[in-house]
Amino acid sequence: MSTQANIVSVRQKLIAAADRLRAAMNELEFGDPVTHIYNPLDYAWRLHLQYLEQASPTAEVLLLGMNPGPWGMAQTGVPFGEVAAVRDWMGITGEVDGVDPEHPKRPIEGLACERSEVSGRRLWGLMQERFVEPSVFFQKHLVVNYCPLVFMEASGRNRTPDKLSAGERAAIQVHCDQHLQEVIETIPWKHLIGVGAYAEACFERVLQCVDAPKKREMTLSKILHPSPASPAANRDWAGTVIRQMQQCGAW
């Protein structure tokens, strides 16, 4: 297969996997205290496609987050999707559709959103500083989220997947595990990096279903999550993560 054909094949597989995931997620139901559910793979699908079109078959490092933040992927369709990084650095453009029902405290404004996602600003800010050009980053890296859904309570408070009921977590896990396995098997990764403990645990579980020869070629590691809710992340997150990436051999 030619290099160009391989690039197209990898991107098509990632897009098809994401398309199956977004359809599966739309079939799920969630109860109290969750009152609003956003699926950015639906309303921001055009932006997500532009993101996946930057994936490379030569990528070696797969970074995994948990689920979208309200001012990041929820707006842009890109994992940890800080608006400025997505629009100005990656060059992703376009409009997003509306959501119904929309929580009044969590409006979807797409790339026009003026709020900043701190986790995304930290993660993509580090990548921009280290690699300068997005093409250089994507040549060796890709970032995905385990679950594409945003869960909100009546107050507008974000509810992460680990806080859902056991039944709801199990329903999500079936489809998100399948999607993650497909992503892992699409490219011959060398490093699987969980952004936080939750993502690392997802990798560990899904790797049990991956063929042994492929699994032996990968190393699993964890980096500090960039959330401002973490005191450790508020003390030189970038410096900590650079050391962690170097220690595991990814950088």
Rank of each mutant, 00 (worst) to 15 (best):
R122E: 01
A199I: 12
E129P: 00
M66C: 12
S119G: 14
A154H: 00
G65E: 08
V61R: 14
W124K: 13
E185R: 05
D211H: 12
W251G: 11
R121Y: 03
H225D: 02
N158H: 11
P213S: 09
T58I: 11
L192E: 11
I15N: 02
C113L: 03
I223S: 00
G249H: 05
P104L: 07
G196E: 04
V241Y: 01
S221Q: 10
P68I: 08
Q139W: 06
T3G: 12
D236I: 06
Q208M: 08
G69V: 04
V210M: 04
A238S: 10
A16E: 09
G125D: 06
K163A: 15
C176N: 07
E217S: 15
V99A: 03
A233S: 15
H225L: 01
V61E: 00
S119L: 08
P104R: 05
V78N: 00
L164Q: 05
T58Q: 15
V99P: 00
C209W: 04
R169P: 00
G194C: 13
M218V: 00
L41F: 14
R122I: 05
W45T: 12
P148M: 10
L111C: 04
V10P: 02
L63R: 04
T93R: 14
W189H: 11
V10C: 13
R115V: 03
A16C: 01
P79W: 14
T35L: 06
Q75V: 03
T186M: 09
L192T: 02
V86L: 07
D32P: 11
K13W: 10
